[in-house]
Amino acid sequence: MADKRVGNVFMPGDVLEDLQVSESVKKIVLGPGLIDDGNRIKISKPGILRFREPGIYWIDCHQKRYVPSKGDSVIGIITQKAGDIFRVDIGGSEQASLSYLSFEGATKRNRPDVKVGDIVYAKLLVANKDMEPEVVCIDSYGRSSGMGVIRNGGFLFNASLNLVRKLLSPQCALVKSLGHRFQFELAVGLNGRVWAKSKSDIQTIAMANGIMASEFMDNNQIKAMCKRLSRAVSGMEVE
């Protein structure tokens, strides 16, 4: 049962007293934006208070800058090759390290085909404020499960963190609506980066614009926008 203040806007410095939690749950989990300060809960970021069962509260703020967090799937750009590791730019305050052995089927003799400038879809293995972040392109079983170098063209662009979370949420109609009208491949990184590839350049750019424009739209507006988009694109296509 959520506290009645869920859905309100809070500012840094505000204090939440007596946060409600249902009887069955003994523990409250404080997510981003909430700090446990002795016997009261302080807010550190401006945003809307949100709740999820069984007892997780967090502040939903509008942020563009990514702060690495363990377990996030991100899109990174290889910036440097230094001996046994690659330096990957994931948009945070520090570049992440990616070992060449963290790819599926990579061994000391069989090095992966990764060059400076490549885009990789990777998962954050180590991410905390005191250490340099580390990413890997394999899961704990040694399989790539969709991760690795993203090849063959496409278009990489930046979006706000709220937009990428919205894209990945099951309630959002964007990906489905676009899917009805375009053929595409989409990779969404939680670090605010989105990679899209479609049949032609015009379609790719149209898709990217559609995604960027949908940031403040609700589902109905998104459906209407996708309809207009596909009409505009088909008008522009030269066969």
Binding site: P12, G13, S44, K45, P46, G47, C61, K64, R65
Partner: peptide, 11 residues
């Protein structure tokens, strides 16, 4: 700073 959602102790 509020627009960038940087963590603040107070405003």
């Amino acid at each position: 700073l509020l627009d960038a959602a940087v963590g603040l102790n107070f405003m």
